[in-house]
Computed example of a mutant assay.
Amino acid sequence: MTSPYVEKNAQNEKSSDVVWHLASVSHEERVTQLNQKPAILWFTGLSGSGKSTIANAVDKMLFDLGIKTYLLDGDNVRHGLNGDLGFSDDDRVENIRRVSEVAKLFVDAGIIVSTAFISPFTSDRKIARDLVDSSQFIEIFIDTPLDVCESRDPKGLYKKARSGEIKNFTGISSAYEEPNAPEIHVKCGEKSIEQCAIQIVDYLRDNNYIR
């Protein structure tokens, strides 16, 4: 599936005046100064799976350890950067494309950036992964059964989706493609939020992303 935004941009010739600006401070210098290994922590899962809550807990744990981090939350991003997008499949693709590019910039700055988005399509998550070095993308599957997500339903979205008020709702009327081999597989239904967050932070420590 190709976003109409991408197709439109592909049809337009790039101006010869647009060139990549080389910064005086390199990526390697930023990484050395921060003394951490930058990466995208890509949280994916159904609505109500606990993505944002766990990502926030991880972000707080890392912050308390003195790690330079930032959290890009799906709802928050739609208030600004992606405020013009709806929830059709094409808009979801564009939503993830934009977030992926922003996350790439954070990695270039030497920061560990978390993204909490449903990101239902395997192809979109692959596009995000391919933007950075293979070691800089960590897919985190927040694996929570649909019935558990639906029982939580903090915003009443599942109820609206079941009644037909919301179209293209992931898990109900729109597909969610589960990750085949995520770097971290979190079974949220079996653990507390703290235990889920500790599992992720331990992975980062064990793989030398943090010291």
Rank of each mutant, 00 (worst) to 15 (best):
S26R: 02
E13F: 11
S15R: 04
N12L: 14
F43N: 00
L65D: 01
K60M: 04
D17M: 04
T69S: 08
K14E: 02
V19K: 11
A55N: 02
W42E: 06
K60T: 00
K51Y: 00
V58N: 04
N9C: 10
L34Q: 06
G66L: 10
Q33A: 06
P38K: 01
K37E: 02
K68L: 12
N56Y: 05
A57C: 10
G48S: 07
D64W: 05
E28P: 14
F43T: 00
S26C: 14
I67F: 12
G48W: 02
A39G: 07
K37Q: 04
S26T: 13
R30S: 13
S26N: 11
W42A: 08
F43L: 00
K37G: 05
E7D: 11
L65T: 00
Q36T: 15
A55E: 04
G50T: 01
A39F: 03
I54L: 12
D59P: 09
Q33M: 13
K14Q: 08
K14L: 10
T32L: 10
S47H: 02
I54K: 01
E28T: 13
A39P: 12
L34E: 05
S49F: 09
Y70A: 10
G48L: 08
A23I: 12
H21S: 12
L41S: 02
T32H: 11
L41C: 07
H21R: 14
T69A: 05
L62S: 01
N35L: 09
K8A: 08
I40L: 06
L46I: 08
K68E: 15
G50K: 07
L41I: 02
S15W: 05
F63N: 06
I40W: 02
L34W: 15
V19T: 09
D64Y: 04
S16A: 15
G45K: 09
A39S: 07
W20S: 06
Q11A: 11
A23T: 10
I54V: 15
D64N: 04
L46M: 02
N35A: 07
V25W: 03
G66F: 14
N9D: 07
Q36M: 13
K37S: 08
I67Y: 08
A55K: 00
S49P: 13
N12D: 10
K60N: 02
T44E: 01
K8F: 14
S52P: 14
N35V: 11
L62G: 00
S52H: 10
Q36V: 15
E28N: 05
D59E: 15
T69E: 08
H27S: 11
S26A: 14
L41F: 01
N35T: 14
R30Y: 14
L65C: 00
W42G: 04
F63W: 12
N35D: 14
L46K: 01
S26D: 15
Q33G: 10
M61Q: 09
L46E: 00
T44Y: 03
Q33F: 14
S52R: 03
I40A: 03
I54T: 06
S52C: 14
W20I: 09
L22C: 05
N12T: 13
E13L: 15
H27N: 11
L22M: 08
S49Q: 11
V25H: 04
K51Q: 00
N35E: 13
N12M: 09
K8Q: 11
K37D: 03
Q11C: 10
H21F: 14
L65H: 00
D59K: 08
E29G: 14
F63S: 06
E28F: 14
V58D: 06
Y5T: 04
L41R: 01
G50A: 07
H27F: 15
